[in-house]
Simulated scan of single mutants.
Amino acid sequence: MRISRLYLPVPLASGADVVLDGEHAHYLRTVLRLKRGFDLTVFNGEGGEFAARIVACHREEVRLAVGDYRPVDRESRLGVHLGLGISRGERMDLAIQKAVELGVGAITPLFTERCVVQLDGERKAQRLEHWRRVVWAACEQSGRNRVPEVLEPRSLDAWLPAAAGLKIFLDPHARGGLRELEPPVGMVTLLSGPEGGFSDAEREAAVAESFTPIRLGPRVLRTETAALAALTAIQTLWGDLAA
């Protein structure tokens, strides 16, 4: 039976007991349907993971006994920061979830000219919290023990000057592809647009900040597909699967 993994953003140490808060207790008891005596893996995003066993599991308390530390590292050797144009609902969730599975190191949601989602005040804070939960769940599923950061949503204009490393943006009108670029040293910043893509002015602004436009093939990809196809290719060429 597959051992469940649980992200716990608290200090963890071998030999300690951890009492789960209401949300984590409900998830373990009601969603995963685990019981006293079950084994699982816990991690806190700081690297490595711990064996754990449920020693109490009832309405009043869910408590874990933390066991041996395992220095397991499943991170890509290539740091990737994804600037992702904000899209609607499940499309954005899917792009974030799969980007985590594909090893992205950080994600910044971006407001662009053709962004159809309007976020401000409390709604922006709620969406940011939701996206971070999507990341936590993706780390639990994929075996990652370091949690990628989801940064505060920003405008594209404000984000572009802060980008670092090999800077790439996805543009179906571009002529070149990833294979034509020099392998990166350090990190990659990948910019992927929202539904409707980038405007001409946004393309020009990205190029002015030393972003290289690349295309992924002859077909126009949906926003949730484009970033994932690019991340897969980047990991194959320069990251997880590179020679």
Rank of each mutant, 00 (worst) to 15 (best):
E61M: 07
E49A: 10
G217I: 08
V18W: 01
R123P: 03
P184S: 07
G37V: 11
A205I: 08
W159N: 00
R5P: 02
A162H: 13
A56M: 11
L8I: 14
A162C: 11
V66A: 10
W131Q: 03
F211S: 02
L181S: 06
V207Q: 14
R219I: 13
Q118H: 15
V104M: 02
G197W: 01
L78Q: 11
G165P: 09
V150M: 03
F169H: 06
D39N: 13
V134H: 05
G196K: 04
H58Q: 13
L64Y: 10
Q141K: 08
R127Y: 04
L64R: 05
L6A: 05
T189D: 03
G83A: 13
G22P: 03
F111C: 04
L221S: 01
I3N: 10
L102Q: 06
A158G: 03
R74A: 14
T108V: 12
I107P: 00
T236D: 11
A242V: 09
L102I: 09
A174V: 13
L216T: 09
I54S: 06
L128G: 01
L191F: 12
Q97F: 10
E61P: 00
V117S: 07
R74V: 09
A56V: 15
A229Q: 04
T223A: 15
A208I: 11
A25I: 06
A227H: 00
R29V: 08
E195Q: 13
E60R: 15
R144T: 01
Y69T: 07
E209V: 09
E224P: 01
D93V: 10
D93S: 13
Q235N: 09
H58L: 09
R114A: 11
A233K: 09
L156A: 01
V72L: 15
S76P: 08
E90R: 11
P218Y: 09
S87I: 14
E129M: 12
L160N: 00
G48N: 07
K98D: 06
R219D: 10
D157L: 08
R127E: 02
L6K: 05
L170S: 05
L178P: 07
V117P: 03
L170H: 04
L178D: 05
S87W: 02
R203Q: 12
V18E: 02
R91V: 12
L160S: 03
H173I: 07
L34Y: 07
W136S: 10
F50M: 02
G15W: 12
R63K: 15
